[in-house]
Design a protein around this nucleic acid. Structure first.
Lengths: 242, 242
DNA sequence: CGGCATGTTGAAACGTTTCAACGAGAGTGG
DNA sequence: CCACTCTCGTTGAAACGTTTCAACATGCCG
């Protein structure tokens, strides 16, 4: 269940001399607008398709590429010696991961369900960020985004109750789904994944979801969908009011 | 209780044209070796002295500078609406903070006890990183370090028990104090600070410290010092064995 | 239609928090 | 220099929330 499809290379290089192979054509990695990206790469770009639970890279491997999610979701996690797992991030469409400056990856990255990823080699990143101010700025912005995400996560884990954690998580998904007041969230990851991200057990996560359902702020038609019935309600839960 | 002493500016600029005022002389901000730094800046460099609990910047303020700790310790934290505080990081000598790419700071930074800080304006950082590849690389490495620190913190908060958290914290301090097997740790921050960093209450932190003392892996001569009697023991505690 | 992974619920055990009281140390003024 | 005070740290006991273990439900795939 794994293949690196559609990795068609070689295109007209720009003027600059030794451009690494993995992302010619100016490396669309730095392009912001995702809809464009999706369109382009569905065609024949250097996008890669991954299947459910497929491993993108493992902790300790040489950090050769970084990635942008076009479709699907990726789980960045670390496994402790005692077997516990902490999910560091769920990477949703438009977001990047694997942008490490250390020589090897510091966490595992696996696809949650199915995903289409954009890939750019480290060498290419380095080349481009050395040459082009604009892309350099963008890359720093990416690093910076990753940083603030991690800090939010720290606050979540350090200070929030189970209900607040789950609600905040839903809020993030709702935001990504552009929900204003009410609407359906597609939940790509399973309960165990959610739990590992939130620093809770599977059971607590589940119970908390049920609790929010009982309070009427959400409904759960099936395991992969959660309907937000009142975004305000979820926000209240996330802030400890309720 | 607050002043920005020793902010003596203006020195011979290098050849490059519009170098912002705050860090001439090539901006020693990117120099790694701290002992040199300490020596230089004790003299008359652009180092700034801060007193106990003095605020370096506040969340939301325009992000004008970033900092490197030469002496002392800085607490980077965020306060939630419910009054709880999460310490995101304790910045020890040789480490940097405030290196944000967003327009305003995303957290508060306060000095724990007394500190000597090196400061570099954002404009200067930008100028230098646009101009010099070497410094650019270094800056990315700094961002990257901050990132991995935050991720370690996430794992700590998401998966570890009180004893593991406290032990890991001690381990970090011990590492910084270059303790191999046994030795004294100077603890710059108070118990409440530790607790807020570890996502525990003050009481639990305290009890856990006592517990480690009872088990003989540390001793606590006074509130600002902790003696590591067996680094292996602390490591064991940090990993859940014990 | 099994069979297996995933999700849900219940009850008891556990660890952390909370509230409350008490100690110890540092700084200040008599 | 000592006593006072105030902050900070330590300890105790009960309350609370989360985890654990166990059973059961649901849905998906062969």
């Amino acid at each position: 269940m794994s293949k690196l499809s559609g990795a068609s290379h070689s295109r007209s290089a720009n003027g600059l001399s030794p451009v690494p192979a993995a992302c010619e054509g100016g490396c669309r990695f730095f392009v912001d607008d995702l809809s464009k990206e999706a369109a382009i790469h569905h065609a024949a770009g250097p996008a890669i398709t991954y299947g459910k639970n497929e491993v993108v890279y493992r902790q300790g491997e040489k950090a050769a590429h970084c990635y942008k999610v076009v479709e699907g979701a990726v789980r960045v996690s670390r496994v402790l010696m005692d077997g516990h797992r902490q999910v560091l991030n769920f990477v949703l469409p438009g977001e990047t991961f694997g942008l490490e400056l250390s020589d090897s990856y510091t966490a595992d990255a696996e696809v949650v369900r199915n995903a289409l990823l954009l890939r750019c080699s480290r060498a290419c990143i380095m080349h481009l960020t050395d040459a082009e101010t604009e892309k350099r700025r963008k890359m720093m912005a990416m690093l910076s985004d990753g940083m603030s995400a991690a800090q939010e996560h720290v606050v979540l884990l350090g200070q929030q109750s189970a209900r607040e954690r789950v609600a905040m998580f839903l809020l993030r998904l709702a935001h990504h789904a552009r929900i204003e007041d009410r609407g359906m969230i597609e939940v790509p990851m399973g309960r165990q994944d959610m739990a590992d991200y939130l620093g809770l057990t599977l059971e607590t996560t589940c119970r908390t979801l049920t609790d929010l359902k009982t309070r009427g702020v959400i409904s759960i038609p099936n395991r992969r969908q959660i309907e937000v019935r009142s975004l305000t309600g979820v926000q209240a839960a996330a802030e400890g009011d309720l």
